[in-house]
Amino acid sequence: MKPLIYEQPLNEKVRSYLRLEYLAQQLAQAIASDQQHNGFYPLFSLCEMTDRCDFRSEVLKDLDRQILVLNKWQDLPHADTQQINLLINRLNQAKGPLQQPERIGVALKQDKFISALRQKFSMLGACCNFDLPQLHCWLAKSWSDRQQDLTTWLTHYHPLLEPICLLLELSRSTAEFVPATAHAGFYQQDCTQVLSLVRVKLTADSECYPIISGHRNRFAIHFVDFQQQKHSDKSIQFFLATCSANH
């Protein structure tokens, strides 16, 4: 049985990155198989997030920061220069589309079909045919045509989503999971390095889940018994990975 991984961001930027990554994953699933109208929910959440904040400048800074770090790694003994160069090339390629003057997703706003759906999707039961007859007309199209539409709409956000997913991939790769024990369901750790992300891995039959809180140098984990929905007083064996903000 596949283990469960829980993640807790320790700053607002990583919190936003994780949400955008999650929406990208939801949309990828909607494109991979016919989920009727469910793909619109993550699409409109993505529209909303990028309307509120233009993430480009922050992502570009993070890409440059990563390239600088990787260039320094090349000088280390036993460094895998081939792998490092591959990562540097991926980061540089991710920068290009972000440097375009047009705001991410602005072209999708001009799509009349998408605009009409987005205005009403926040309503309860808004997918009724009397509210959105155009949606029911679209759902009558073949899956291959709808799949192509979803792919096209998501393409508007690739310049932002692809570098964010790459940055999170690199962040996770810098910290390996190590065994840890939460005595009486509680674990706490202080760190000298600045952290950006705490990851907890549990077996699927653990029957508990972690509540993680903290900030850049310190975090705590409370394990909650799922059945009783209260703090567990048992010793919990788990695996922990702490990702540095300065990787």
Results as ranks from 00 to 15, higher is better:
149 D>R: 12
212 I>Q: 09
238 F>A: 06
229 Q>M: 06
4 L>E: 06
57 S>T: 15
94 A>L: 13
46 L>T: 07
65 R>F: 00
142 S>I: 01
57 S>R: 14
161 L>E: 00
166 L>D: 08
235 S>C: 10
235 S>L: 04
43 L>N: 12
152 T>M: 11
73 W>T: 04
37 H>I: 14
120 K>Q: 10
125 G>S: 04
222 H>N: 14
133 P>A: 03
38 N>T: 13
204 A>S: 02
136 H>Q: 11
67 I>C: 01
88 I>M: 07
204 A>E: 03
181 T>I: 15
168 L>E: 14
178 V>A: 14
128 C>F: 09
32 A>N: 01
112 K>S: 14
13 K>M: 00
7 E>N: 04
4 L>I: 05
158 H>D: 09
98 L>I: 12
74 Q>L: 10
117 L>F: 02
132 L>I: 13
39 G>K: 11
94 A>C: 14
208 C>M: 04
104 I>Q: 03
127 C>F: 07
143 W>K: 13
105 G>E: 07
181 T>Y: 03
30 A>P: 06
168 L>F: 00
54 D>H: 07
92 N>K: 15
122 S>L: 01
10 L>K: 03
156 H>R: 12
202 L>K: 13
134 Q>M: 11
84 I>T: 04
187 Y>E: 10
11 N>F: 11
121 F>Q: 13
148 Q>G: 01
124 L>K: 15
118 R>F: 07
178 V>W: 08
